[in-house]
Write a protein that binds this DNA or RNA. Structure first.
Lengths: 211, 211, 211, 211
DNA sequence: AATGAATGAGGATTCATTCAT
DNA sequence: AATGAATGAATCCTCATTCAT
């Protein structure tokens, strides 16, 4: 059905600038008005561009908004990934975990508006990226665990649980801040992860809870 | 925000039945079509009621949908809370945790359609209830921890982190099922919580993080 | 693809009146602005109705315009058919033919605006009716010829040629009037048909009809 | 109506070639997509030219399409006229008529796509040429009749009726083919014309043409 | 002369809401 | 209380046309 002609990839400099302008405007509108109210008209106006111009570069409204979210998501991913690698130099596992928690909270706090849209208003059609993103992080974390430890087969399950745990605690801290103070959240989250990893990756050390 | 005059609460029995019919229809439409496509027309048709009648009981579309979500959320909360209390009779902490994890996954799996809407498509305007819901669960869990242990001041922070952890792991298990198998998820989540609680509530037992 | 819900058939009196108002407006707009410029906005304005109301009764723009044309075509057909039957009482074939020619020119002249749209601007999508209409006339004329004469197998071919001949001469007389005077056109067209029928249906005889 | 300044007639050879390319493209698009969907963008793309270039040679979209139709119409007219003259050498009037009928059907069949556009979708603005075309044919036929016979003053009326008759029968044969077979159509149309001409131009005689 | 990015008015359609019945 | 026809603002998208390069 939808045989829309693919929009031309911007090659000229002016075009590229225009695309950036539109994506910037899309982000602003998305954050200010939410997904449902992010109309093409509003985006065009915000970008100082005519409505028709949007369609020079994006097949329709959904592609435009998907690209906005894709770009921003990618930015976050890059920042977090780099910090992750950097933090591997920390001296103890607890320090590694803590440093990553801090980075995560910082990054999320700096992008609260975007996260609100991404986590609370994305229609299923635009969902693909969030899902893909997490799966890639799963693999990254599983790999890191595998390398760092003599972790067995459970590594994937552990990574999966960890990623979802950290994600949501951090998201909630930003989008629905608890009356706890940031330090407490960092401490608790760090403790949660550290205890879990100690239990799972270094089983001899302590014991399974009670039995 | 909403300066609309509040509609009269239905007192007649017929009215109450009508409200239920509309809420039922709202739920069905929400689950089948998603938030954006949950139009008043569709809800009215599904309820076998005229569009105008909706406004006898709800100020506008958003109040209607918010009430749908409120009602369903409350149902879930009740079910989970009751099970929580029941599970306190389990013999060991690990068994208590595990039983609650299982209940949670069961309940969420049985309401996947609703959860998808609530967790992926809610506009900010309809968001209030998810938040309230979690705050009440926070209190519940904090209280239980307080009673069960000699846990100190950190109880609230622990409860907050725990609730968010469990919530999201369970939600993800239902809405974006991992290639892990249910048993693995139950085991890991149980281990995560148990290790964390042992660490925090029974600090002497194992290692402390940094100190 | 197009699973548009069928519009409700108007049962109330008010609804029926509304449909008529819209169709009247559609005709007026069609005649004044032509098919391409017959926008839903213009039709609604002309009808003194809101744009949305159009869609209460018509699935889309094309259904609306098709219904306008259908209704008018049917009116013309009825008028011409009745006259056709009436004219069978004329004393000679030549008089029958002449009477029908006159009726045709009269009717077409009275609906020149509509005919211009129907014959010069109909997109293929709206074409079905013109075609159906002519096929029905073909059958009517073939039947009449069969009854009136001992005409053999060629009756269908004769009817087909006759219908197209008369149609276009009459249409051209109205839409692109020749510098001939109406009487001359009536005479010639009558002579054309009469000579043809005499030749084909009464092969042994000579030309002249009367006698 | 069109108060736009007339574009300069192309004098350079390259320009002339460009105009031809555009007209060719216009014809292709017109035949493939119909009048309404014959956008300037599509024509430019088909011609391998930029949209802006169109306006170097044509004041607007309508002039462009009108010129396309003008050129094609002229081609048809030329072909038919030449055949007409050639056919005057046939031995009997009936043979002359038949030969022309055959030529007409052949030519129309070979240009069905164009005719569909011209006869079913032309907006009034592009209509002028069809009209002109027929008037010139009228004169041609009237002259021929005048020369061939001692036909009196009615010659013009006869030509007018004849041209419209033949036109529409042929058009219908191509655009909405009857279930008759080509031979039958040729026979009937020939008979129609022959009988009519005999009656009108040779009034004393009987039906058959003889010589 | 040619380009093609940018324009922006225009058009079809939807849908939350109202109100006469 | 209920109805459902009517509303009309809002939305997405197209396309003829222009103009800086």
């Amino acid at each position: 059905m939808s045989s829309k002609p693919p929009r031309r990839a911007p090659r000229q400099q002016r075009s590229r600038a225009m695309v950036e302008r539109i994506l910037d405007a899309g982000l602003a509108v998305l954050v200010e008005h939410g997904y449902e109210r992010a109309g093409t008209g509003r985006v065009a106006a915000q970008a100082g561009v005519s409505p028709g111009s949007l369609y020079q570069y994006f097949a329709d409204k959904h592609e435009l908004l998907a690209r906005v979210i894709e770009r921003e998501t990618e930015r976050l991913r890059t920042r977090i990934s780099r910090a992750f690698v950097r933090h591997l130099g920390e001296p103890t596992p607890e320090r590694i975990v803590r440093a990553n928690v801090v980075t995560l909270l910082d990054t999320f706090e700096a992008n609260a508006g975007l996260l609100r849209v991404v986590y609370e208003q994305l229609p299923p059609s635009a969902d693909a990226h969030r899902t893909d993103f997490k799966h890639r992080v799963d693999e990254l974390v599983a790999t890191a665990l595998q390398l760092q430890t003599r972790g067995g087969e459970r590594v994937e399950a552990i990574a999966w649980v960890l990623v979802r745990t950290v994600e949501n605690v951090a998201i909630n801290y930003v989008l629905d801040p608890p009356p706890l103070g940031r330090a407490a959240v960092v401490d608790e989250l760090t403790a949660l992860i550290t205890a879990y990893l100690a239990e799972r990756l270094d089983p001899g050390a302590t014991a399974s809870t009670s039995d």
